[in-house]
Design a protein around this nucleic acid. Structure first.
Lengths: 204, 204
DNA sequence: TTGCTAAGTGAGTGATTACTAACTTAATGG
DNA sequence: CCATTAAGTTAGTAATCACTCACTTAGCAA
């Protein structure tokens, strides 16, 4: 018959289905009916786990944050050159967008901006932390003589973190017609090369 | 009493209102009722001008394309250094996003991606033309000795056109808490500087 | 084995929304 | 000044959707 699962498990299933369907249908067209169907439940069952749809969006937002942090954490913190760690961190962002393509649309969706200011601020905080992380690594790279010393690591980091979403626009418009990770890595090389100090460039 | 306007004028008013409201309410929450209210008409009047809501979205999309082209065309084609024209073109993109902040959300919206593939392709074509435009200018700059000769202008252009949307994500998450144009121009300077050939950098 | 808890269902509701049909009247050209 | 055209209105409809409520039963602990 029907298998009942503990609430925590179901909640996770629902959030995951919501993320997938938000991509397939668009964040706006995401209905509780569609989610229920994907999970294999009736529509009212969703409301047992999330009293309102906004609660569901909140959980989806939190999940995206978790996914980001998980992937950052998987990048070893203290080995290799600082620039290599920047490469790895950017690669996680590209991989995340590829695995969960609804993310850019959700970041711009008004679920986040009009409906849920708190969540918007949470994402801003997350992005700021990522910014500081990258900026710190770039500062370290600069101190190691890898990067041009007169460039501001904060500004460089802004360019680096803008790269994945900037590329995602073209990826999205092209109907995902190219490999986001591959293209992103190639462009990041170019980006980092522009920051490189002449001494290092000659020596490597 | 009620002022009647020719269909062409009303259509333009409706599209403009839709663009503004798509930002305020989100592209998803954009209802014919809200548009009608903003234009000063009753809701069914919208359907006299646009038989279906999809026709309206198509017109909105076409309008965005027009706005882009208008602004590009305003950049003088044959004066100044090639890099200065790149600066001017990027500035138009930043200005457009600032003036019509719904654009990024619309680019990712499923109105465009699931509902209206033709429009998506039109935007891709528009972006490709912009890409070629920038790449051509960068190639020219390279030939003028302004840019490092071994860098591929196509890839450099990809970084340059990704800058405005990449920055728009942060702008949006920060609740538009900084000047997009100003920040964008500063980062573009940094970006271009990375592409600059050493000879030029020393001489300027 | 049994009794309790909570996951899930069936049936429904009010609000919203894209869209229609029949009618009205402002604007325009002759 | 009048007739025609077309912009706009009033009233309504079918569909969709978030959400509710009373009820059922799977799963677990004692």
């Amino acid at each position: 018959m029907l298998i009942r699962k503990p609430a925590a498990t179901r909640k996770a299933e629902i959030v995951e289905a919501a993320l997938r369907l938000a991509d397939e249908l668009g964040p706006d067209r995401l209905t509780t009916e569609a989610i229920a169907g994907a999970v294999g439940l009736t529509q009212p069952a969703i409301f047992r786990h999330f009293p309102t749809k906004q609660d569901l969006w909140e959980a989806v937002g939190a999940r995206i944050g978790e996914l980001m942090e998980e992937r950052w954490a998987a990048v070893p913190a203290d080995e290799g050159r600082a620039t290599d760690r920047v490469r790895a961190l950017v690669a996680t962002q590209l991989g995340l967008i590829q695995a969960t393509p609804a993310i850019p649309a959700i970041l711009f969706s008004r679920e986040l901006h009009v409906e849920n200011q708190g969540l918007r601020r949470a994402f801003l905080e997350l992005m700021s932390r990522f910014h500081r992380l990258i900026a710190g690594l770039l500062a370290q790279a600069r101190d190691d003589g890898e990067l041009c010393p007169e460039l501001d690591p904060d500004d460089l980091a802004a360019l680096v973190i803008g790269l994945p979403p900037g590329l995602a626009v073209r990826w999205s418009l092209s109907d995902r017609g190219f490999d986001l990770g591959e293209e992103g890595r190639r462009l990041l090389e170019l980006q980092l090369r522009g920051f490189t100090s002449e001494a290092t460039r000659r020596s490597s």
